[in-house]
Amino acid sequence: MSNAFSPAPLPSREALHGLLLGTAAASAAARGSDGSRPGAEATLQVALLDGLADAVEWAQAGVGADDVACLWLGALRWVKAVDGAVPDGAPEPPSRGVASALGALADAEGGDAQNLAGLRSPEMSQPHRPFNRPAATVPELASTDGPGVLARALGLGLLEHATEEDVRRLATWSAAFSHGAPAAHAAAADAAVLMRALRTGAEPVAALRESLAAPSEGEAREALRRGVGHVITALEAGSSPFSGALAAAGEHDEAAAIVAGALAGALTGPSQVPAARVSDAENAAALLLADSLGPALGS
């Protein structure tokens, strides 16, 4: 069946703003929230991508910066917003406007609990070298899988002028900050490459279907497949892709809703996202980040 609804790629700022709001609104819908309380994964997505903005700003000033380290500092800002402090022994990240807009996040709801568990570490976990603090006494935590790696990866896929190799690298490392399983890292890399394909002119349904063909398994991979499937169904029905996110939310599947919401927002922009589902903090932070990072992402 051919899809009747095939949106043209948006300017990068609009795609980023749509992705951030789409993630937040889909998460809220799945949690049954009225938008008064922020979502844990939506706010972590914003904080990590603000770390990328930090690296871009250094580069624009002619100063080299470690992009992965900047992403991790963004994650630490999120941990600080949730816990009130960074983990003992971790560096204190410099202040950023987006983190200030998010404010305190002790009441952030939902999402993959492994995000916070994995990020409560004084050192930056790396692929194949996890520093997840409890792993010393509970070794299986070094192989944690879960869908919490996907929202940040989809955001990194908006780097349309980066090579596919670079997009995969950033998505893999950002996944490793909190999740140790190679399957989660692979799912994150593939999610980022899917978004990159959508941003660089691939026909949406074809690109989405191709992403379903990856043979690897795991919790993150299954959540990616479910979310992508909902968007395909919406596109082939001639509907707005955000209806796919709402379908996942109606099944109380927050992980799939987040994937579908991020994809839908990036495809159609913020005007297609139900704004009432997005908290004031998420709205303010998304707008700041769209203005600061959006123009640097691509066209």
Rank of each mutant, 00 (worst) to 15 (best):
L76F: 10
S178F: 09
S292N: 11
L267K: 00
G39L: 10
G111V: 08
P7T: 03
D50A: 14
D190W: 03
S271I: 02
A245R: 00
E109A: 15
A260W: 11
G201P: 03
D54G: 11
L52P: 02
D190P: 00
S299L: 12
G74S: 05
R168V: 08
D166P: 01
A47F: 10
L154P: 06
H128S: 14
A24W: 02
V273S: 00
G18C: 04
R152E: 09
P295I: 01
A181N: 12
D50Y: 04
L48H: 05
A25C: 10
E57G: 09
G227T: 02
V98K: 02
E109N: 06
A176M: 09
V68G: 01
A220V: 03
A276D: 13
G32T: 06
I258L: 15
T43Q: 09
D145A: 05
V56F: 13
N115D: 10
D107A: 13
A206S: 15
P11V: 08
D112F: 10
A257V: 09
A15S: 15
E210C: 06
E203Y: 14
M124Q: 12
V149S: 12
M124P: 01
S27V: 09
A25N: 03
I258R: 06
A30H: 07
E282D: 07
M1S: 15
A284Y: 01
A186H: 12
R226A: 15
A59M: 11
W173A: 13
A264M: 03
S121H: 04
D291I: 08
R168I: 03
A255M: 08
A256Q: 05
H17S: 11
L154F: 12
D50L: 04
G157M: 07
G146V: 01
G244M: 00
D66Q: 09
S239G: 09
A69F: 12
A264D: 04
I258F: 06
R96Q: 13
L10S: 01
